[in-house]
Design a protein around this nucleic acid. Sequence first.
DNA 1: ATCAAATATGTCGTAATACGATATAATTGC
DNA 2: GCAATTATATCGTATTACGACATATTTGAT
Lengths: 154, 154
Amino acid sequence: MSHPSTELTQADFESLARFRFTIRRYLAFAEQGAKAAGLTSQQHQALLAIKAQSFTSEMTVGDLANRLLLRPHSTAELVNRLVAADLITRDSAVHDRRKVHVRLTPRGEAVLATLSARNLRELQTVTPAFEALLLQLSDLVEDFVGPNDCDTGA
Amino acid sequence: MSHPSTELTQADFESLARFRFTIRRYLAFAEQGAKAAGLTSQQHQALLAIKAQSFTSEMTVGDLANRLLLRPHSTAELVNRLVAADLITRDSAVHDRRKVHVRLTPRGEAVLATLSARNLRELQTVTPAFEALLLQLSDLVEDFVGPNDCDTGA
DNA sequence: ATCAAATATGTCGTAATACGATATAATTGC
DNA sequence: GCAATTATATCGTATTACGACATATTTGAT
C-alpha cells in the first residue's frame, strides 16, 4: 500500500478520458478542415511545421521528422506526397548535399494560411476547456504521485 | 484591411506549431506505452473511454463512436480487434437487442491501469508546457480575431 | 589522399486502420 | 403488422507509418 501510483480512481480515468477527448475534438476539427482543402491532417501539420521554422532557418527532412515525431524515412514519404500535391518543393542543400530542404509553394502557403486561420479561430473556442481540464489534472496528479515523487529527474 | 483574420503573423504560425507539437509529444508517449503493451493507441483510447463511462452507465458501440469521434462502423471494427485481443467483451443489450454492450475483460482492466498510471505521470511533466502554451494562445487569439468577432455563435 | 564509419535520405513490401457502400437485425410508430 | 428508423456489422479500398534495406554524401583516422 506504499504505492498509491498503482491505484487509479474513477476521477483519474475520467480526467484522462476527458483530456484525450478534448484533444481529439480539436484534431478532428483540424482534420475536417484539411480534408475540405484536399489534404490529410499530417500533410497540413507538415506545412505548419515548415512554415513555423521558415522564419528561423531552412527545414530539412530530418528536422521535419523531429518536429512530427516520425521516422526520417516515413517523413521522406510524406514529403513525396506533399511535392506531388504541389504543396512544397524539395531541393538538395548546397553545403551538405545529403540534406534536402523543403519549402512551401505559393499554393502551400495559401492553403496553410486558410487552414491556420480556421484553426486559430477554433482554438479560441477550445482553449477554456483545455485550461479547465489542465487545472483539474494538476490536482489529480498531485494526489496521484503523492509526496514521494517530487524529483522525477532521470 | 478590415479583415485582420486573414493575416497570420509569424507568432501565430509558431504558436500553432508548438501547440500541435506539444499534443503530438504526449500522444507519441502514450503510443509508445501502448505499443510496449501490445496495443495500438486507438485500442488504448477505446479502453479508457469504456472505463471512464463504466462508472456511470453501460457503453455501447455507438457511445464509443461518439467518444472517439469515429464512424459507428469503424468503431465496430475496432471492437472486433479488441475482442480478438481479449481486452473487452461484446454482449447484446437485453432491452434493445440492436445495441451491443462492451466491457473490459480482466486483462483489459490490467493493461489499462498500467498504461493510465504511466500516462498520468507523464501528464504531470507536460501540463506546465500546455498551460504556458494556452496562455500564449489566448493572447494571440485575442489579437487575431480582434474586436469584431466576439460572438461566433453559428 | 583513401577508405571505413557515420549521417541523411529514399524505396519497397507489410500491417494497421478508417472510411464509403452496402447489408442485416431489431425497434418504433402509425 | 409493416414501413421507416436505429444500431451494428462486413467487405473492398485508400492512406499511411514502419522495418528492412539501399544509396549518396560527408567526416575522420591514418
